[in-house]
């Protein structure tokens, strides 16, 4: 594990570079194939509406995968992430309009722990709604 950020360089409140991740229906089909999650709520609008959703929604695990990129890009080595957890609070709704949705992710160092570890709190929103709650990673810095 070779993080490019030094523990001594960060403090509680240090912000990580924020990112915006686009997601379209094509993204969801590709993610379904790669992850093996073919639940039709992620690609079939008729089915999604029938089960009470406003439209097709992104896989929660897709959103979770995008959010941690803010941390792995910052740390350099993805293996710096030693813990990562989220709560799925609201779905990311992905309309079939050729534009799709945006997942906006920001993160900051919430606490410095022992052993060169820091806790990073993440915020992920889409269409103004918080889509992840309790989203936290523990990261080992250099």
């Amino acid at each position: 594990m070779t993080a490019k950020i030094a523990y001594a360089e960060v403090e509680a409140g240090t912000e990580l570079p924020a990112r915006t991740f686009p997601v379209t229906r094509a993204t969801l089909v590709q993610y379904a194939g790669a992850s093996g999650d073919f639940n039709p709520i992620h690609w079939n609008e008729k089915f999604a509406v029938e089960v009470g959703l406003p439209d097709v929604i992104a896989h929660g695990m897709f959103t979770m995968a995008e959010a941690i990129r803010v941390v792995t890009d910052w740390a350099g080595d993805p293996a710096a992430v030693v813990e990562y957890g989220v709560r799925f609070t609201k779905p990311v709704v992905v309309p079939n309009d050729g534009v799709g949705a945006l997942i906006e992710v920001s993160a900051k160092v919430a606490a410095k722990l022992d052993d060169n570890l820091v806790r990073v709190d993440l915020t992920a929103t889409s269409a103004g709604q918080k889509v992840l709650g309790m989203s936290r990673a523990v990261v080992r810095l250099a």
């Binding site: 070779t2 194939g33 790669a34 792995t72």
Partner: peptide
């Protein structure tokens, strides 16, 4: 395939040499 599906171009996922430089 998974890294491409999440749009993540981090070379540690696709390039064995890049992963080795990180100690993997």
């Amino acid at each position: 395939e998974f890294a491409e599906a999440i749009g993540d171009a981090n070379p540690a996922y696709t390039d064995p040499e890049a992963a080795k430089e990180l100690g993997h």
